[in-house]
């Protein structure tokens, strides 16, 4: 097995397969597509299963909703950068700072708008939001993992974490269409917790599913 002759044979065998690898679209394009499809899917699911919040259009003009959507969107873009870098084998500089703008927005939102109970009731209860974001995250989670499965991440656990983070954020973003709670503090705490849980799941599953 482990002789230079065997290695030569292996190389000959591999060379015979040259030109046969399927060339997919560039990773960047595929990941963006997966993100957009999941976002649309989550919004559709949220609208049909939970119902669009009645004042959704009006809420878009409120500061708290702008902060909420802005923060989650900025974080999602950061997570996309993270996942893109993590999916490659190259040793990259850590790009954690890509999350910084979103984090600042989220904390700023929480600091400026601590109104609204942290423990709302009914469809604005923390558990409801938590469960909704976790459940809706399933779709982006699967789509993003499928996309990354064919890559060669330098660290599968880290790549899985980035994928989970992105999935959680996309789920949260799509869910805002139905969510009636948008106080800054509520969003930072409960959205944050749900997204962290999805990130954790991604890290654990990434070690297995994204190893190559």
């Amino acid at each position: 097995m482990s002789t230079p002759e065997a290695t030569d044979q292996l190389m000959a065998k591999l060379a015979a397969q040259s030109g046969q690898a399927v060339q997919p679209w560039p990773l960047c394009r595929r990941l963006c597509l997966a993100a957009l499809v999941s976002l649309g899917g989550v919004a559709l699911l949220a609208a049909s299963l939970l119902g669009v919040r009645p004042d959704f259009m009006a809420s878009l003009a409120t500061t708290r909703q702008i902060f909420k959507i802005g923060a989650v969107l900025a974080l999602a873009l950061g997570a996309l950068t993270l996942a893109l870098a993590a999916a490659r084998p190259e040793r990259g500089r850590p790009v954690i700072q890509a999350l910084l703008p979103g984090l600042v927005l989220l904390l700023l939102g929480a600091a400026l708008d601590p109104s609204g109970s942290l423990w709302g009731r009914g469809p604005t209860s923390p558990l409801f939001c938590l469960g909704a974001i976790l459940g809706l995250a399933l779709l982006p989670f699967v789509l993003i993992f499928i996309t990354l499965r064919h890559e060669a991440p330098a660290r599968p656990g880290y790549a899985g974490g980035a994928a989970g983070l992105l999935a959680g954020l996309l789920s949260a973003l799509g869910y805002t269409i139905a969510c009636r709670a948008d106080s800054g503090l509520f969003v930072a705490v409960w959205y944050g917790l749900a997204i962290l849980l999805v990130t954790l799941a991604g890290t654990v599953l990434g070690r297995r599913l994204l190893a190559w």
Partner: peptide
């Protein structure tokens, strides 16, 4: 021994081959 080195080398070559589509 050199056995392990050759083993690792084969793993690397196979890795290059199986993941070559990920190089843009």
């Amino acid at each position: 021994g050199p056995d392990l080195a050759e083993d690792i080398l084969q793993e690397v070559l196979l890795g290059i081959h199986l993941k070559r589509h990920t190089w843009e």
